[in-house]
Design a protein around this nucleic acid. Structure first.
Lengths: 182, 182
DNA sequence: CGATGCATGTAAGCTGTTACATGATTGC
DNA sequence: GCAATCATGTAACAGCTTACATGCATCG
């Protein structure tokens, strides 16, 4: 059984949680995430769903008497197995280290900007990050542990991450202000 | 002037910092990052460098009398402008929110595992994360602020991020242990 | 003198993006 | 009645991965 990529794993997980669900509602769930990493474009999702179906990881059922032609997706036993393998595969150091933050990528190169531009950058980013942090906190508040524990914990992870990014960018701003002007 | 993608931006930044440098050394710098997100495969870098050159964002110079045929890359004025635009573009909420953590993706779906498997997962991940944290701290120690301030700050961001991930996964493990067994 | 690392690159294939296309349903 | 949203999909294109290919240099 082939190894799933990240988007496939996430989609299988969403289907398992919300089944029976349509590809369209799958897209909505992904879009609703505070992380904009999952763009969930039609051109990504529909071929992906077709792929999972030809490999018997999901099955689809056409609702007759539905004029819209909705297709309802369900995970198969094979799909569950592949999904569990996808979750567990995480122990590999490569996946642990595969984190990405476009803000941090840019910090390394800030000496390409003038001092004034650096301050502007750090200021703007801090403002936007604070807004983002608020969003993750609201998202968390909407997901109490009593409702779905792991949905809650996942959202908690998002909020913790946002908070640590704010903390880092406060330090960055302070360091830029402290720095002798060139 | 076209907008740069993330890999292009990072590569231009590395070239600007280390110029004149070869495409090969560029790959090595990317590989040396604790984040395995930048795989820096030959099939990615060489076409990318060619792209940047045809758009006059970099220039390359062949070292005659070098039997290996090294090509040395330098950023152009146009390149510097495009690079600064890439850095500043970050203010967009979409980029701020474009964070990604394959561990957190999986947390949302942990109820697909049995209680024993959940604990195993959280245990393994915590162990691997602690190792990763150590790596980021060593990376940080190698980059004192006196040497290159922003290189230091970027590495600091990586270490802070690793620490917050450890803190989150400690909470996750505790929550799983506290949870009534099913 | 053979393995490893330096250094360049290409080709096939997969996956994702953007943009388009079509039609049903709901809400104002 | 018209706009927005539901719902499915496709086509062109761009970018990355994996695997291959070539040759020079260095170290033991």
């Amino acid at each position: 059984m082939r190894k799933l990529n990240e988007l496939e794993g996430v989609c299988l997980g969403v289907i398992q949680k919300n089944q029976p669900c349509t590809a369209y509602s799958l897209r909505k769930v992904l879009k609703a995430s505070p992380s904009s990493h999952w763009r969930a474009s039609a051109g990504a999702i529909y071929p992906l769903v077709a792929r999972l179906e030809t490999e018997d990881l999901i099955v689809s059922e056409d609702d007759e008497e539905d004029q819209r032609g909705r297709k309802y997706l369900k995970i198969t036993a094979r799909g569950k197995k592949a999904f569990k393998a996808w979750i567990k595969e995480i122990t590999s150091p490569d996946l642990i280290a595969d984190v990405y933050d476009p803000l941090r990528s840019r910090v390394f190169f800030l000496d390409a900007l003038s001092n004034a531009e650096q301050q502007r950058f750090a200021d703007d980013v801090l403002g936007a990050l604070n807004q983002y942090k608020k969003i993750t906190e609201e998202h968390l508040a909407d997901r109490p542990p009593s409702d779905d524990l792991f949905e809650h914990l996942g959202a908690l992870g998002g909020a913790i991450n946002a908070e640590s990014r704010v903390a880092f960018h406060k330090k960055l701003l302070a360091a830029i202000r402290r720095k002798p002007k060139t």
